[in-house]
Design a binder for these strands. Structure first.
Lengths: 206, 206, 206, 206
DNA sequence: AATGAATGAGGATTCATTCAT
DNA sequence: GATGAATGAATCCTCATTCAT
């Protein structure tokens, strides 16, 4: 009789596998169009097994999008503490990090997911506002205020609307998601052009 | 008890009503989570009636998102022809228009819809790239090139990445969609701050 | 403004047109798969108009299949009265008539229709039994009894099972309906072979 | 209140049960008028379960009618090989077999089904022509040719139209399906009368 | 009388979830 | 724990029938 492989493994690892599979599926097709079986298949387990780790599809989604975002901001946050670093370097570092950690990762689908499903899952939106946006803006505000005080900003008013700094990053994701197939966007150029617009030339007018 | 009226009306108007209802529903819950019956109910008609105007849900969606966007760009395009107008005024006008025509309208949900369902409806994405993005970028490129030539830009490199100009508009929509409930974003300030960063002061070269 | 043709015409003629259209449709696709709109379109009238002549689909079907059969048997019946005609000629004439009036006509679909929908419309079956089968068998019985008495039959027992005489006709319809496209059946040969089997040679062994 | 049992069973058996239920339903009401739920209920399972075994209604139908016919002809075929058996015995055996295996079985509804739905399912018609008709006629042709050569046939021309031999069988099914309720047809007599007409008396050539 | 837009009941199919093995 | 067959609620879509014009 053919043995059915019932691979038992560390629950924590299994859980992580399911989340990875779920993320791939949700990112690809959205919440509604993803079948629990898709997730199971992708995780190489049986349908029922998913339910041993997550009570239902909704919960799976919520735990997924909530758990995937956290660690991005840590690094930037710590750099900011060092007041001697010029604001431009901090923002530049933020863009680099964003590029490596989000844009060039599967995580780039996250925005799409949150934007798409946000209205159906207010918990998720709220989570992102609280955990990511609030913290990110706070950091940016600090950096920009310091930059304004030091005369590093061409327009000090920017310090009041830190969202402006996030805008190019947003644009890069949206473009990557929708239009990269039709026309390439050089994000390096995008970010640099913005940095050069935002900040006064480093060596000043010397 | 509510009367069941068998209201007959102009097909064109009926079609428009359905599209309006459909847009509201799709914007609210996304493609998959919207039931055809929701659309019908919202349009105050019976389920079957929708099918007299659109062959199926998918087509309803496609015709919807395709038909809703067109007229936005016309106005900006015509202004650009006038070469005596400063670039800053053109871009400023673009933001104003965007605010009035998109941000403060139900159309602000459009991006969400396209972003969310794009991968499932490549036709839609392609349509937007071809009809909106291509044209918009082309106009911006003209304007920015002219501005660069006239010394109106603080950083002429921006002329190569016209997407940068769209970034704040994008941010304004995303913010409005997701976080406006938690924290207000003053888009006026956002746009102005960006304009003041992008362009040299008006009286500048005196 | 474009005039909508509202062709009024003799109700009797209109009714006949609808029945003709209905027969074509039902014969082609069966009762369930035929849409009232198909019938209307085929009759070149609007959906609603059908209902001015028939209360519902079921009734349309019943009146249709009931009205289409009657006149076939009249001719045979009258010939039988003439006792001097040999039985073989009568049966042969029946086959010829059947060929011309049923097999080579749209009426050949009738059997299929009755057989297919019979269980759903006992009225129809009963009608055919009463109006067609009973009368046909009765005639055949008379003819065969006379033939037996005259020694025209190779096997007089056939007179007790007049259905046997109908069997080749049945076969010809079924074959035409199902298999004629794959392989031709020479009905002339079929009928002649049967006649030559059933009846003793005309000129006998002289 | 009835218990909802979640009975698991051998897939092959389950499949057979569904086919049996489907056959009963289709035979009773035809393809279009049969609801998948009818089939499920009759098989004492839930709607969805049917779809675990058949992708859709159409496929269920096709697999059903294709699978139900096969084994009928085997027996006759093998008898024919024995050349010493008189043709009459072979044909007689064919009728007996037909009576026991088709007429007195639920299989008697098969003709109705094929005739009714054939035009909508050409695959089915083609299958029957290829698998049943072709083979059956081929056997009959062999038998009749042999009979003609031996002088067993009253009319050797019959050997060219083997369909004639099938005609009484056809008649017996059609009668059973439509009119048995109104008037009994003694198929024994029908077949015997035909056999006695077709073949010369057994002791004949003495 | 004729039309065809409007209605809504009905039926095929999907898929989240359960549970016997 | 793991499996996947079984379940049935939910949703798309069709089409017989009605009725305002």
């Amino acid at each position: 009789m053919a043995e059915k492989k019932r691979e038992k493994r560390d629950p924590e690892q299994r859980r992580a596998e399911i989340l990875a599979a779920a993320f791939a599926c949700f990112a690809e097709r959205g919440f509604a169009a993803t079948r629990m079986e898709d997730v199971a298949t992708r995780a190489r387990i049986a349908k029922g097994t998913v339910y041993l780790h997550f009570p239902d599809k909704e919960r799976l989604f919520i735990e997924l999008v909530s758990g995937i975002a956290s660690p991005i901001l840590g690094e930037v946050g710590s750099v900011v503490l060092n007041e001697t670093i010029p604001a431009r370097s901090v923002v530049s570092m933020f863009y680099s990090l964003f590029k490596r950690q989000v844009l060039e990762t599967e995580r780039r689908h996250l925005l799409r997911l949150i934007l798409a499903e946000g209205p159906m899952f207010p918990v998720v939106t709220e989570f992102y506002y609280r955990e990511i946006i609030t913290k990110g803006l706070s950091i940016l505000r600090t950096v920009l205020a310091r930059a304004a005080a030091r005369g590093e900003l061409r327009n000090p008013a920017v310090a009041d609307v830190p969202q402006l700094v996030m805008a190019p990053a947003l644009m890069s994701i949206v473009w990557a998601t929708l239009f990269e197939g039709y026309e390439h966007l050089d994000t390096e150029k995008l970010f640099d052009a913005f940095l050069d617009t935002l900040f006064v030339a480093e060596g000043g007018t010397i």
